[in-house]
Design a protein around this nucleic acid. Structure first.
Lengths: 104, 104
DNA sequence: CGGATCGTTAACCATGTGGTAAACAGTAGC
DNA sequence: GCTACTGTTTACCACATGGTTAACGATCCG
């Protein structure tokens, strides 16, 4: 995981931005309005999202068009799913064991 | 997301610990050996994983038994999957549009 | 041109994060 | 009881993170 999408997702505001961009590309204003922090704070969050490759930016005149970069987020989603498979298998084993105990 | 599992997963060492515990519960030594950092560093990572509810700890004599807490990690996995559904749908729309253009 | 708008940059501050070495606490086992 | 072992606690340090206000840059539009 070269550009560590998990680092990008570690802050609720950045997850909020990702949620909005999952609905479609948007300008900075549209994607980040209503989080109750100043504009420079937003700029920094966007920088993290860009550095980690989670979003891309296209400058169009004075507005910027932000878009999700699914490949990078998929790395994170895939890792989570892998782990889920493992721990689910783990708990199935425990379940089986408990069932075996209760109905011998 | 009250106890923010994403914060816990933001560091590669903590993800490494999660990977090992996904194979089954383990002692601190077994779950955290080989990361090339000092013991206090490990203690701090474990503290984060515990605070966020990602792992639990049972003290048994002088060793501690660490185990994954699937419910909390599932929150993160579910969120990721939800987002994936959204951005996948998004890109399908783009694909459809492109197909429509190439074969009118 | 001149003002409004979109967004970033610069400077600064408080707090969090990630690491260390050294010491400690408790337990296991000879 | 003494020693070895497992793991935490206690400073301490450097740097990252997350926020602010003020100023700036660039573009759009009347």
């Amino acid at each position: 995981m070269v550009n560590d999408p998990f680092r990008a997702l570690a802050h609720p505001i950045r997850r909020g931005i990702v949620e909005r961009l999952a609905e479609g590309p948007a300008t900075v204003g549209d994607a980040t309005g209503g989080f109750g922090v100043s504009k420079p704070a937003i700029t920094k969050h966007l920088k993290v999202l860009e550095e980690t490759g989670v979003i891309t930016r296209e400058v169009h005149g004075r507005t910027h068009r932000l878009a999700l970069e699914p490949a990078v987020l998929s790395e994170a989603a895939d890792w989570m799913d892998e782990q889920r498979v493992l721990w689910t298998r783990l708990f199935d084993v425990v379940d089986d064991y408990l069932k075996e105990q209760s109905s011998p």
